[in-house]
């Protein structure tokens, strides 16, 4: 009997331990990536216009690890995803990624001295968590949430919500509008032009 209780306790401990060890992992993961980006931005050896390209390259490298672009793409297209053939899906992911990076890296590079606070985690589903952060600027506090998904033990970002505006929902509305009267190939064509890969 005593043995049973001990093994039961052991079992419970074993079951709980990994969970408690993992609590905070999503936040720490996002924070790790953001810190890496901040390191690049604050790197004094990378000052000046000529170094901007290297800076951007380094940030792109972090973004590659930080984001799950496949997940992000699928969720953006939602129901429309299945209208795309596998190779079209692949191209969509690449084009979408390059448009997002092109649009946001410039913005990140212009970051100055704002403080970023990592507030808390908010579980969304079994394998998705929202990491809530705030950027403190002199003018205002800007809430930014990173939605992360766990795949093969890794947490990666599939959506960013800035002041209540979800990135993937915003693009979904735009793509849905285009797909309402165009084929997937038509959308890809629009994206190729936007990404400068026509």
């Amino acid at each position: 009997m005593g043995k049973n209780i001990i093994s039961l306790i052991l079992l419970i401990v074993l079951l709980i331990a990994p969970v408690s060890a993992h609590a905070g992992v999503p936040l720490e993961t996002v924070k790790g990536h953001v810190d890496k980006v901040l390191d690049v931005l604050r790197d004094t050896s990378l000052k000046g216009e000529s170094m901007k390209k290297i800076k951007k390259e380094k940030i792109r490298f972090v973004s590659e690890k930080m984001f799950d672009y496949a997940e992000l793409s699928r969720r953006t297209l939602g129901q429309n995803w299945i209208r795309f053939k596998p190779e079209q899906q692949q191209e969509f992911i690449e084009l979408y990624k390059s448009i997002l990076e092109g649009a946001y890296i410039d913005r990140i590079v212009s970051y100055t001295d704002e403080k970023i606070i990592f507030n808390k985690e908010n579980p969304l589903s079994e394998k998705t968590v929202e990491v809530q952060t705030t950027i403190i600027t002199k003018k205002a506090d800007i809430p930014i949430s990173y939605r992360v998904i766990r795949k093969e033990g890794e947490w990666r970002v599939y959506d960013v919500v800035i002041e209540g505006v979800s990135l993937i929902s915003n693009y979904r509305s735009q793509f849905a509008q285009i797909l309402a009267n165009k084929s997937p190939e038509g959308l890809l064509d629009t994206l190729r032009k936007k990404a400068g890969k026509a």
Binding site: I99, A103, R107, G164, V165, S169, N170, Q174, F175, K194
Partner: peptide
């Protein structure tokens, strides 16, 4: 710069702004 960035990142700025407005107000 904010508005410029928004336009630059959007595929269809009009739809993007409309959606952002609705999402933002919902949150508020």
């Amino acid at each position: 710069g904010d508005y410029e960035d928004l336009k630059k990142s959007a595929i269809d700025p009009y739809v993007s702004i409309r959606d952002a407005y609705v999402q933002h107000r919902k949150k508020k």
